[in-house]
Every structure is written in structure tokens, then in C-alpha cells.
Design a protein around this nucleic acid. Structure first.
Length: 198
DNA sequence: TCATTAAAGTTAT
DNA sequence: ATAACTTTAATGA
């Protein structure tokens, strides 16, 4: 989801700078802004009781995050938003954001689309039961690649560490590594000096 | 099949 | 150098 910066600023958005590892908002906070990254990377995460990180999503330059919380009245954030790198982020107050949506109805559709996509992604990954680790990883890779223009096999360099892939899928790193190796043997992906191509 | 533990190798800061 | 990430292997649920 991306909204033009000038439109956002004309509605009162301000630019805020964060340093790597800064918390932008945290678990249990009530979200009062629409956030859109101008520069940098952000992650949404939370932690299990025993301290394992669950990565909900990595947000790249140009993308927004946490929008869905603005449609819920009293909901508290289930996730932390953490700057991965130094960031410049546009913040638009909730009320102005909602007004903006009335003014530009097609934005509502775009937002529905990006929110739905993410829910779909999570549902596929989280389907436990009969799921194999390879299915989760394939779901993750398909999801990432679906945002890319180039659909050719092995054309997509996966911009994630194995650690991050593990945290996104809920698998442990070792399983992730082993499964990826196996997938390479099965010609589902390629590895060129540790980078994964899908 | 996968998590966990441990130990060692590799890469990035 | 030191931390962060990757890999291999053994063990157990």
C-alpha cells in the first residue's frame, strides 16, 4: 500500500526519522497513525513466552504498515514495529487518514488488497496439521515472488536471511536450512554463494 | 518430521 | 574483534 507523499503531507503527515533498532510502536499500544516508509526497513514482530521471535512481516521502502489497526476502534497492537535500518517514515494521524479514504475511495480498495494479501499469506504459512516445512517455505517464497515482476524460475533473489525465513514461518533455523538444501536438490530453487534464487 | 542442543565455520560491522 | 548468521550432527518427542 502506497499513498503519494505530497497527498499525505497536504493532509498533515509529518516525516519522522528513526535509527536502527528504534521502536516505532510496541505491543499493546493503541495505534494513532498511518505509517508509510520513505526510506529504510521496518519489521513487525512479537515474541513467544520463551523468547523466540516471531516475525510477522518485513516492510520495505515505500510500504505502509499497521493500517488495519486504524479500522479497529479500541484494538491494541499485537506487534512491535522496529526499525531495522535508519528510517524516514511518514506519519499521518488516524482521523486524517480516514478522511483521506473518503476523499479517494480507490485507496480503500488498495488497502483491502494489501491487508487481504497478508492475511492470506499468514493463513497459508500457519496452517499446521499436515503441513510440511517445505510447504511453509514455498508459501513464503511464492508470496515474496508474487510481488516481483519477473516470473522466470530462479530469477528472484530472496532478500532474507535463513534466520528471518525461520522466524517468518515459525520453523527453527536448522530445519529451515536443511529443508532449503533439500529443495535445492529437488530443483525448486538455486543457491549461489549462500543466496537463494527462486 | 521437526525442535533442541551443542559446537564449529563463515560473514558482516 | 565481536556479533550475527550458517551449517552439521546427535538426540528425543
Amino acid at each position: 500500500m502506497v499513498i503519494d507523499q505530497y497527498i499525505l503531507e497536504s493532509k498533515g503527515a509529518i516525516v519522522v526519522e528513526y535509527f536502527a533498532n528504534d521502536l516505532i510502536f510496541i505491543e499493546d499500544e493503541i495505534i494513532r497513525y498511518y505509517y508509510q516508509i520513505i526510506e529504510g526497513k521496518v519489521k513487525l514482530n512479537n515474541y513467544t513466552n520463551d523468547g523466540k521471535e516471531i516475525l510477522q512481516n518485513n516492510i520495505d521502502e515505500g510500504q505502509s504498515f499497521g493500517e488495519y489497526l486504524l479500522f479497529l476502534d479500541k484494538a491494541r497492537s499485537p506487534v512491535n514495529a522496529v526499525a531495522i535500518t535508519n528510517c524516514k517514515i511518514l506519519k499521518l494521524p488516524k482521523s486524517a487518514f480516514l478522511k483521506l479514504l473518503q476523499e479517494y475511495p480507490h485507496l480503500g480498495l488498495d488497502i483491502n488488497n494489501s491487508i487481504s494479501e497478508h492475511i492470506h499469506f499468514r493463513n497459508i504459512i500457519d496452517k499446521s496439521g499436515s503441513q510440511r516445512s517445505s510447504h511453509k517455505l514455498i508459501a513464503l517464497l511464492d508470496h515474496l515472488k508474487s510481488k516481483q515482476p519477473d516470473k522466470a524460475p530462479f530469477s528472484f533473489m530472496v532478500p532474507l536471511t535463513r534466520q528471518e525465513m525461520a522466524n517468518l514461518t515459525g520453523l527453527c533455523v536448522e530445519t529451515t536450512i536443511k529443508t532449503i538444501k533439500k529443495m535445492e536438490k529437488d530443483n525448486l530453487l538455486k543457491i549461489v554463494n549462500r543466496k537463494i534464487y527462486y
